[in-house]
């Protein structure tokens, strides 16, 4: 089976690891080989969390710079920071709602314009899907469902070997019961907007 390499970048607390778990579970249930890796050393202290997911016939659990087929960014500046993980054929999906790091908040750094970020991502890679996942999550009734909106957008690209149905059943299986309904709604909205 062909190999598809996905990198997800997020800020601690955005639910990146849950999104990876959903994708992993959906793959396992569909019989698609999957291996994942995560680095989240100091996520609770506001750091960056990165997951790598390798679908198909490969043994490695990590992805080298320049070798991601898809980059999914939960935060626009972090998506841009992860551009080195891409090549000109990479498909990029980014949330456009910024979470400025503390260094910016105290005036020790300048947050790039969202338009600049999107323009660079679009120019340097195969294509860019940019959506305000925070607004969609809010609309779906759960501000924390940014991860589900973005999973929806990811599915809409059709690049991943997992089906939307298997992802929905994984969401039902592993996300908290109180949130299943809004999570599914957020996922559907992400699919629709990106599709």
């Amino acid at each position: 089976m062909d190999v598809t390499r996905l990198i997800i970048v997020a800020v601690g607390g955005q639910g990146n690891l849950l999104a990876s778990k959903v994708l992993g579970e959906a793959s396992l249930c569909s019989g698609i080989p999957v291996r994942m890796s995560e680095i989240h050393g100091m996520a609770q202290r506001g750091g960056v969390v990165e997951s790598a997911l390798v679908f198909g016939d490969a043994e490695s659990t990590i992805i080298s710079d320049g070798e991601a087929d898809i980059l999914l960014g939960f935060e626009p500046a972090e998506t841009l920071r992860a551009l080195k993980r891409c090549n000109p054929k990479t498909v990029v999906i980014t949330n456009t709602a910024p979470l400025p790091p503390f260094t910016v908040a105290i005036g020790k750094g300048i947050y790039p314009e969202i338009e600049t970020i999107c323009k660079l991502l679009r120019e340097r890679t195969a294509s860019l899907i940019d959506i305000d996942a925070a607004a969609l999550a809010k609309e779906a009734g759960n501000v924390l469902a940014v991860n589900m909106v973005l999973l929806g957008a990811l599915t809409a690209t059709g690049i991943l070997p997992v089906t939307p149905e298997s992802i929905e059943s994984a969401i039902e299986k592993i996300t908290r019961s109180a949130f299943i309904e809004t999570n599914i709604k957020a996922f559907e909205m992400g699919r629709k907007v990106a599709g």
Binding site: S64, G66, L80, R81, C86, T103, P112
Partner: peptide, 21 residues
Amino acid sequence: APVKIDLSDIPQIPQRPPNLC
């Protein structure tokens, strides 16, 4: 080797160091 993307003109992205809560 895989084709690398030119990153020379990417604006500086503010760091996100871990911080005391």
